[in-house]
Design a protein around this nucleic acid. Structure first.
Lengths: 226, 226
DNA sequence: CCACTGACAACTGTCAACAGTTTGAGCGTG
DNA sequence: CACGCTCAAACTGTTGACAGTTGTCAGTGG
């Protein structure tokens, strides 16, 4: 029984600010608060049923995470990223994730890598029929891969840059025709890990992320020619 | 004329919270607020001459940055890192900084790399006499190197992990006898950049950071045998 | 002597009101 | 008609007070 809207009395563990942060983050990443949108403290606090204090704390944390931008005396806005910034984010992600792959190739227990393979098997089976279907499990693959590095700070940084990328890509839905290609690339990366060839895994991963970036950039430019 | 303590009236640009954040950060990194210390909101706000609201905002941002840990209804404490966490931080820094070096080798203009060399020349000249002196410009070298990647998000991540490392190393002063060795390693890295050999620069940098970590770990274990 | 209970003090989380700034509409003027 | 000025509404930054929780310590009973 997991309630989430306790009218007046505070729940036992988490504080209002703690609980509001993920709500706001999801509103932004879901597009309910699109890039450029202003976050009105009064309206939002009333909508969420809390006062401005805890709301401001949650918003502040979002600002540190880089999802919103606070301008003194003028309000906070959902960040809107340029193509250049999206590229920078991907480059940062390459730095982190390729290193995670190298670490995983060296230190991850074999059974964890096998789990990755099994997950890809299941995904392939699930999508097998409609070959041009989506690939919703792709972020999950990258998250599990990053976890194999067994380095919490590294994983944390990857999570944060991942959110910024998600926001930057906003409405550029992933093209379904890349699903099959992406799956194959994930397989190759996993195979390299299994062979304990970190450099090869890193190279494959970098190529994989680069084509993902190019895909996103193409969609972006198509949406906004200038 | 840069005033910093405006008694009552708010300065034009920055807000109290904005100005308090760097003050608190410096207090922590300077050791005035040592690891494990509790940050009492009432006392701190009185000492800083502001009310609890802005102070809480500044503290919240520090929590997101990972320098303090907030425990609900129990206060926030300056974080105290284990040797394992310090290693993780260094590994993360390796991921970021080696990639920055690779990017710099590919894209940085030659004159920027030359500036690095000149800086090393001046440092050597300044320390030349007392060969066992300190090497205070070392962080500056790493900062400039990271800036050559021309990737603001990457630089930002490096800055944040750098602060955590600084806090984790707390009282483990850098051993001066490593100054000469470190300077030589910096020279080698710069030379590799100049030769546009990104892989070599990355390898040298990783070795450099690894010995820095080992040095810090040795000092830590000497201070706290168990 | 130790474990337990209950009340008190200190502190954090939250709220509502106040103060200063920005923005934009309305109005007058060149 | 365009431009600048004035002023009020809206909103953010800040403050002080209130509410709920945690930790402590004296007092009691085993």
């Amino acid at each position: 029984m997991t309630e989430q809207t306790r009218p007046t009395k505070l729940g036992r563990l988490a504080t209002y600010a703690d609980r509001t942060l993920p709500v706001l983050r999801e509103m932004i990443l879901d597009g309910k608060l699109p890039p450029g949108e202003r976050l009105n403290e009064v309206h939002l606090s009333q909508a969420l049923g809390i006062s401005r204090g805890p709301l401001r704390e949650a918003i502040n944390r979002l600002a540190v995470e880089g999802l919103v931008e606070a301008v003194t005396h003028r309000g906070v806005y959902v960040r809107s990223f340029s193509a250049r910034e999206l590229s920078d984010f991907y480059e940062l992600r390459v730095a982190l994730e390729t290193h995670a792959a190298r670490l995983a190739a060296r230190y991850a227990p074999q059974e964890r890598i096998d789990e990755l393979s099994h997950m890809l098997d299941e995904t392939e089976q699930a999508m097998g029929n409609d070959a041009a279907g989506a690939y919703p499990a792709s972020p999950d693959f990258h998250a599990r891969l990053s976890r194999l590095a067994a380095n919490p700070p590294l994983l944390q940084s990857l999570t944060e840059v991942g959110r910024k990328i998600q926001l930057a890509r906003a409405r550029s839905a992933h093209q379904p025709q890349r699903a099959r290609v992406a799956l194959d690339e994930h397989r190759a990366i996993t195979a390299a890990l299994s062979a304990r060839d970190g450099e090869h895994a890193a190279a494959l991963l970098e190529a994989h992320l680069t084509s993902s970036l190019n895909n996103a950039l193409a969609v972006l430019r198509a949406a906004e020619p200038k």
